[in-house]
Amino acid sequence: MAKYGMVLNMDRCSGCYTCVVACKMANGTRPGVDYNGIERVEWGEYPDAHVRYKMTMCMHCEDAACVKACPIGATYTTEEGVVVVDYDKCIGCGACVTACPYGARHLVTDDVHHYDGVVLPYEEVTTETRGLNLVEKCNFCIGRVNNGEKPMCTVHCPAQCRVFGDVEDPESEISKYIAQYNAQQVEGTRIWVVYPEGMPEEEKLKTPVEQAKSKA
């Protein structure tokens, strides 16, 4: 059985936002709903200041608080390790949104579009097929993955700093990438990371346990 994971190489990231916009295209997310994000991180002072970028997204926790919080089993972890929402079952109660330590879930209730009152062609095949009053999040573009394609953020990243695949397969692109860049798994998640030298510890992606503590 494949086990999926994603590498975020922040040492190569230029903060170009292509992953953010590619995700919005693929998933037809509504205004203000972003499954992934880019945050600027700074440290040091001139002439030794540093400005880098941090990627954020659903960490696909192995023991996910959102899954435990869901009262009806609408959100669950697949055998491949992907935390997903069954939109047919989701009742939009929002319990998982509160439970998620990373703020990676969005309860979508308003029928708003990017151009007021206009449904664009890409929205017809994404946003409009999903409906309202349910919780959305990154699912590693599982529909694409099941169809033999890659998550859209990894397709369009111009710097190849996002890589997805089966980490159990030593021949997979992601396994080789993890070995080449010595990417480190964020414990308890399906996310591997490479940080630029000197990035402050407090800016690094936390494990679910640490993240829950800092949120509380």
Partner: peptide
């Protein structure tokens, strides 16, 4: 082969009312 955020956004701009 690499497009950027502006390129991806063409699917919005093309149909901008």
């Amino acid at each position: 082969v690499n497009i950027c955020a502006k390129g991806v956004s063409a699917v919005q701009e093309m149909y901008d009312p």
